[in-house]
């Protein structure tokens, strides 16, 4: 079954051997889910289960991706497989887009429909006296004072950081195609660093929100949409940064060729996706 994809690109498609990692992933997720339910409901043992699941997950990812990287470096993936990877990654990113679309939908709905509706005259008369429609709003029953997150402080800096990281990763890609390895690694490193800086600022911003602005996850629907949207985005930046780091290490190990480096491209696509989501966030969550 040895394949020389070069001779006839559509003669043999690489079909991997059986392996136990997938089910291990399921076990890991199962443990983490059960653990999380326990934690949420203040039962004992939840964290242990989460930790266990997480370790299994890490091990599984390590072995599974290890196998894939090995196969890739062994030249088992030709043009045909490469196209599959491209479709696969594109549709995965599409699914992520839809995930964020759900949360953006919630944001628009509350801003355009539910908050004004709660402030309608009859609603004021019968249910929520004195509530007026404005955004940001934490809803009619929220009595504490809070301040919204201003757009032109840290968030603007973060926008710059992410946008530049989009540029650096593109430069790295260009370098890879030109086979300029040092430049590749350097700019990849810049990208990771910018991502990490972004996350650090984001953490600072959250701290600021909680300690000074009295802006919390539980600050009505403004807090909910703010933290869920930025939080899931931050989570994706974290994933992206980890993936970039893996790619960086692989670059340092001499992986990838100018004409064959799909893993690099996949991560770059993902990074751009995270970038675009951030622009949406900046405009609709912080700015407008």
């Amino acid at each position: 079954m040895a394949q020389t994809a070069t001779t006839n690109p559509r003669q043999h498609y690489f079909v991997p051997q059986p392996m136990p990692w997938p089910i291990m992933g399921s076990i890991a997720l199962f443990c983490m889910a059960t653990g999380a339910v326990f934690v949420f409901n203040s039962h004992h043992g939840g964290w242990i289960s989460i930790a266990l699941g997480f370790m299994i997950l890490l091990y599984m990812l390590f072995r599974w991706f290890g196998a894939v990287i090995g196969e890739s470096e062994a030249g088992k993936y030709g043009k045909w497989e490469d196209v599959s990877f491209r479709w696969g990654m594109s549709w995965f990113i599409f699914s992520e887009v839809m995930f964020f679309a759900g949360f953006f939908g919630a944001l628009f709905y509350t801003r355009v429909l539910s908050v004004p509706d709660l402030a309608s005259l009859e609603s004021q008369a019968l249910l929520w006296p004195n509530f007026t429609a404005h955004w940001p709003s934490a809803g009619p029953a929220f009595s504490e004072k809070f301040s919204p997150m201003a757009a032109w402080g840290l968030p603007a800096v973060n926008t710059l950081l992410l946008l530049s990281s989009g540029v650096t990763v593109t430069i790295a890609h260009w370098a890879l195609k030109e086979n300029k390895r040092a430049m590749l690694s350097l700019f990849l490193f810049f990208t990771v660093a910018l991502g990490v800086a972004f996350l650090a600022f984001q953490a600072t911003e959250y701290g600021h929100a909680y300690s000074e602005l009295n802006l919390k996850l539980s600050t009505g629907v403004y807090g909910s949409t703010f933290f869920m949207l930025t939080g899931f985005h931050g989570f994706h930046v974290t994933l992206g940064a980890i993936m970039l780091s893996v790619i960086l290490v692989r670059c340092l190990l001499g992986h990838f060729k100018p004409d064959h480096h799909f893993a690099f491209e996949a991560v770059a696509w993902y990074w751009h996706f995270v970038d675009v989501v951030w622009l949406g966030l900046f405009i609709f969550v912080y700015w407008l």
Partner: peptide, 18 residues
């Protein structure tokens, strides 16, 4: 349910219909 968000809670500006 667990973290006090108000997506589906009118008191916090959300809406069950959402």
């Amino acid at each position: 349910r667990h973290f006090g968000t108000s997506f589906f809670n009118a008191a916090g500006g959300g809406d069950p219909v959402l």
